[in-house]
């Protein structure tokens, strides 16, 4: 998979610097919006490991986002983020294990349908049982900013900016970790599976096991993004697990480009920005969004990432 080249990385870092400086020039509303985009980018990035990494198109990925978000609700309030974040990742990863083990018996279109079914099952688990506090969602206490026993009391009016920085830092860490992962032997094997799974099997790769590991990692990362969403909004809702959100993330991946690791980040920001811009112009924002998506798909086969200078191809 394409990892951003030197110029591309510089541009991405420039973008990160702009986002990091927002507390000094943007309204608190826009800080919130930027956090939303950052968390969406994390979620889409976790999906990219499946779609761009191994050619697995899942429509159930939001389930793990939702499990991560609900971890904040299910864990006792007042815990530190140093505890809740790994717990959310773990829970989501654990949920992804059986779902992946069963869905990966299929491929292609059937995989899409089976993940959709599992995703909706988890959605209804939180929607229709008392486990998740009801179908209308529920407010949660934000985990405390405390790492290694160091408690950081964040005053209320600084909360949005601190969350923005935490989300930005996590997104950068996630991108760096995935970029490193794709350079390993495991990452190369994944790309080989995306290119030609049958051939990889004939070479001696237990492709289902390799894909399952990727599926669990992607689930855990989706859990992290879900946790940060719950923490940013202080609210969780069964809708987090629904297939709409999975489809939205797929759209971000498509918009940004399947072939590039940084594609989903661009896609998420474009998606959130576009939705915002469209509401300024018209009440029929979905129409504007639809037209722009159509244009991107038709005019930019490599997505928005195709606009950045070419980098080196991992695995080529």
């Amino acid at each position: 998979m394409l990892v951003a080249g030197r110029t591309g990385t510089l541009l991405l870092l420039l973008g990160a610097a702009v986002v990091a400086s927002m507390p000094w020039w943007a309204s608190s509303y826009h800080l919130q919006l930027a956090s939303t985009a950052l968390v969406s980018a994390m979620f889409a990035l976790s999906l990219q490991l499946l779609v761009g990494g191994a050619g697995m198109v899942s429509l159930g990925h939001a389930a793990f986002f939702g499990v991560g978000a609900y971890a904040v609700y299910l864990l006792p309030p007042g815990l530190s983020i140093g505890l809740t974040l790994p717990a959310a990742a773990l829970l989501a990863g654990v949920a992804a294990l059986p779902v992946g083990a069963l869905s990966l018996r299929t491929r292609g279109f059937f995989f899409l349908m089976v993940t959709l079914a599992f995703g909706q099952m988890l959605f209804f688990l939180f929607h229709d049982t008392p486990l998740g506090g009801g179908k209308d969602g529920v407010f949660v206490t934000r985990p405390a900013f405390e790492i290694f026993g160091l408690l950081w009391e964040v005053p209320r009016r600084q909360r949005a900016q601190v969350l923005l920085w935490v989300n930005l830092g996590l997104l950068i860490a996630m991108y760096a970790a995935l970029a490193a992962l794709m350079r390993t032997l495991f990452g190369h094997a994944l790309l080989g599976i995306r290119a030609n799974e049958d051939r990889m099997q004939a070479l001696g790769y237990d492709t289902r096991r390799i894909k399952l590991v990727a599926f669990v990692i992607a689930g855990a990362l989706a859990g992290i993004s879900g946790h940060m969403w719950a923490m940013t909004e202080a609210f969780v809702n069964p809708e987090f697990l629904s297939w709409h959100r999975s489809a939205e993330a797929l759209l971000m991946v498509l918009l940004g480009g399947i072939g590039a690791l940084h594609g989903p980040i661009l896609g998420a920001f474009a998606y959130v920005g576009l939705g915002e811009a469209a509401t300024l112009i018209t009440e029929r924002q979905r129409l504007v969004e639809g037209l722009v998506f159509l244009a991107v798909v038709l005019l930019l086969p490599k997505g928005l990432a195709g606009l950045l200078p070419r980098g080196k191809e991992g695995g080529r």
């Binding site: 032997l185 001696g204 790769y205």
Partner: peptide
Amino acid sequence: RLAAQAAGFAPGLWLRRA
């Protein structure tokens, strides 16, 4: 290279830089 990597591709080696 991928073909060669397949021989004895144990999880302990997965995180080696390709």
